[in-house]
């Protein structure tokens, strides 16, 4: 459906913006390495099913793309951050990883290793942007491209919400876990969405309240 495709495309766009920004500026300035490490963890733990199940060619290619691009991003960020100190990238990610794992143990579609990892990845994804937002808030301003990247990334899960509503009516599908974490993820972004709207529409300076 249109929401799902638009969501996946905005996810792809966000990754291209990010990689392009790093390559053009030849710098990791303003980009949180921690957020990108969390995304790599999210993709690797969610897509372990690549090894033993097949849904569609689209699905498989996208999964391979997300895993490989997230690892590539980390490599590039490491390469370009040698000379700069990321003063502001000091969010304690263990405070995101540990609770996500506990929530994965409590809420899952079956007490199997793969299902626990899948649930863990959803919880972790919902809060993975926090180090990046924290960094943005501390530095007070940001390159427009970086904010475009965060916007596209946030839009992707926001678009999954109408996708789930559509699938509920069209297919009778209702994945409580995905919907709950998806709503949390969108709420985490909502303040950012508002600020982005203000900045882009009214062209005012960027700051996170």
């Amino acid at each position: 459906n249109i929401f799902r495709i638009a969501g996946d495309l905005s996810h792809l766009v966000s990754i291209f913006i990010l990689i392009n920004t790093i390559n053009v500026k030849k710098s990791a300035q303003g980009i949180s390495l921690k957020t990108n490490i969390l995304y790599a963890v999210v993709f690797v733990t969610r897509y372990v099913d690549l090894l033993y199940s097949y849904t569609s060619l689209y699905n498989t290619l996208m999964k391979i793309f997300f895993i490989s691009s997230s690892i590539y991003t980390i490599v590039m960020l490491k390469k370009y951050s040698k000379n700069i100190q990321q003063y502001n990238d000091d969010f304690k990610i263990e405070y995101l990883i540990a609770p996500s794992f506990v929530l994965g143990l409590i809420f899952n579609h079956g007490f199997k290793f793969s299902e626990i990892l899948w649930s863990f990845s959803l919880w972790l994804e919902s809060v993975s942007i926090l180090p990046q937002l924290f960094m943005l808030q501390k530095s007070g301003e940001s390159q427009l491209l970086t904010t475009h990247y965060i916007f596209a990334l946030g839009l992707y899960r926001a678009l999954y919400i109408p996708n789930w509503i559509y699938r509920y009516f069209a297919e009778g599908r209702f994945d409580k876990l995905a919907i709950t974490t998806g709503i949390i993820q969108t709420l985490v972004y909502s303040d950012f969405f508002y600020v982005y709207y203000q900045k882009v529409i009214k062209n005012i300076g960027f700051s996170l309240p």
């Binding site: 799902r4 849904t55 996208m62 899948w118 996708n163 297919e171 009778g172």
Partner: peptide, 10 residues
Amino acid sequence: LKGGIIHDEL
């Protein structure tokens, strides 16, 4: 509702 969740989303 369908029983069993298929992880066909990204």
